[in-house]
Every structure is written in structure tokens, then in C-alpha cells.
Simulated scan of single mutants.
Amino acid sequence: MNKNDLIISSKEKVVPLDRIKFSQENKDKLNQLLKEFKYIETLKQYELPVDNKLLLFGHTGCGKTTTAKAIADFLNKKIFVLNLGTIVSSRLGETAKNITNVFKIATRENAVLFIDEFDYIGRIRDYDKKDSGEMKRLVNTIIQLIDYLPDSTLLIAATNHSSIIDTALLRRFQLKLKFTLPTNTELDQFYDSLLEQYPETYRVLNRCYGISYAEAKDNVYREVKKRIIEVEESKEVIK
């Protein structure tokens, strides 16, 4: 497996950590994690382990992937993304071997390893009776890999369905951040921050609520593009 297939391109825009919306509880937990990595050598002198297993769970589109990328950028670490499309194999035992190789790569680089849709490979070991044997072996492998993960490597897993993840796996994550839908006030602040970069002509739109940040962003871009096109079309009519 080529490690370059797992690295997020440096050309990809990363949202700075201080621009991501967090609840106060999540912000406090995240700040503690970042400080532990900053003073990791000092903590080692006292034989204190670093909390290096982080689970992001909750509603889709609320910033889990964005947060993982921002953490890696803040810590100045490479981020390796587990591509389930290339990792999961129909051959018996092959998936566990592939995942083991990914952990080895991330460990050698002291990197951030990000596993999205973690529930796909970390399901409760009797969740699927038809494939319980293979699933048990896979989950057992992941548990062992997590247990021997060195402090300098940060594992971040994300899921929209934490309830179906094996409890033994869940216990391995020292930190768990729950992502919920933003409130109306939070969405208004988000809308304002997105719209401020455009001329006032394009800032008027119907604001939707009860949706995720990702859905809100799509809504803003769609409405702004629509108004820009309308203006351009009106110029053509005048000609």
C-alpha cells in the first residue's frame, strides 16, 4: 500500500481550528488534548500517557471531518485517512491485514490517523450474525492496534452511528466529542460569516434552520450563485 494514497493533499484547504464552532464542553476537551501533545515530552518524564484516541460522533455534516483535518494542521502533523473503499476486502482476513498496515504507516510518521465511518469496521461483534466470525477477528485486531498505539500518534475516528460500535472499542477512546445540530443563533452567525465576503446585493437569502453547517453552506453557495447568474443574465438582456 502506497502511503501517498492516504495523505490529504497539501493543496486542500484546511479550516483553521479556531474558526470551527464547538460547544464549550468540546472546546475544553480539545484544548486539553492539544496541550498534552504540546507538552508530551514533559509528561513522559512523569510517566503520564497522552490521550491520543479521539472519537467524534453525532449528526452528519456538523464538522467531524473538518475537525480532524484542523487538528492535524494545528499539531503540524501529516494526516492519513483510512480509505475504506481500498481497505475492506472480501478475502478472509485481508481487511485486518490492510488496516494493520495503515496503522504501521501512521505510527512510523508520528501522524494523525483518521478513520471516517468507524462503525463500518468497528461494529458490535454479534451485530451481523452472517459474518460474526470475521467481524470478531476484525474488531479484535483493531483493539490490539489501538492498545499498542504510541503516544506520538493520534487516532481520530468519526461516526454517525456510535450505538452500533463495539463497547470494547468505545472504551479505548479517552476523549469523545459529540457533534449536534447548531442552534438558530449559531446558524445565523455561520450565515453571516459566509455572506460577509460577498457584495450586499448577494447577501439576501432565505435562511434555513434545523440543518447542519454543511447543509447551510451548500444553501448559501447555491443562493449566491443563483443571484450572480441572474445579474449576469440581466446584463445580456440589456445588450
Rank of each mutant, 00 (worst) to 15 (best):
N4Y: 09
N4H: 11
I8R: 03
P16C: 08
L17M: 04
R19W: 03
K21W: 07
E25N: 14
N26T: 12
K27F: 02
D28T: 15
N31S: 12
L34T: 11
L34R: 05
E36A: 07
F37G: 03
F37Y: 10
K38Q: 12
K38D: 05
L43S: 06
K44D: 07
Q45N: 13
L48N: 12
V50Y: 03
N52C: 05
N52Y: 02
F57E: 00
F57P: 00
H59E: 10
H59L: 07
T60A: 14
T60M: 11
T65R: 04
T65S: 08
T66P: 00
A68W: 01
K69P: 03
D73R: 09
F74W: 05
F74E: 04
F74C: 02
F74N: 03
L75K: 06
N76M: 08
K77W: 01
I79H: 02
F80M: 09
F80N: 04
F80E: 02
V81A: 00
L82I: 10
L84V: 13
R91N: 14
R91S: 11
L92D: 09
L92F: 14
G93P: 05
G93Q: 07
I99Y: 00
F103G: 02
A106H: 08
A106Q: 11
T107V: 13
T107M: 04
E109F: 12
A111P: 01
F118Q: 02
F118K: 02
D119I: 15
I121C: 01
G122K: 00
R125H: 07
Y127A: 11
D128G: 07
K129E: 12
R137V: 13
V139G: 01
I142G: 00
I143V: 14
I143P: 00
Q144V: 15
Y148D: 09
L149V: 15
L149E: 05
P150T: 13
S152Y: 07
T153Y: 00
T153I: 06
L154R: 01
L154A: 03
L155F: 03
I156R: 00
A158G: 04
T159I: 10
T159D: 01
S162H: 08
S162M: 05
S163K: 12
I164C: 06
T167W: 04
L169S: 02
L169F: 04
L169A: 01
L169V: 13
R171G: 07
L175T: 15
L177N: 01
L177Y: 01
F179Q: 02
F179Y: 13
L181S: 04
L181V: 11
T183E: 07
T185S: 10
T185Y: 10
Q189M: 14
Y191N: 05
D192Y: 11
Q197M: 10
Y198T: 15
Y198P: 08
Y198G: 09
R203K: 12
V204I: 15
R207E: 03
G210E: 07
I211E: 03
S212C: 08
Y213H: 06
A216I: 11
K217V: 12
R227W: 05
I228E: 07
V231W: 06
K235D: 10
V237I: 15
K239F: 06
K239D: 08
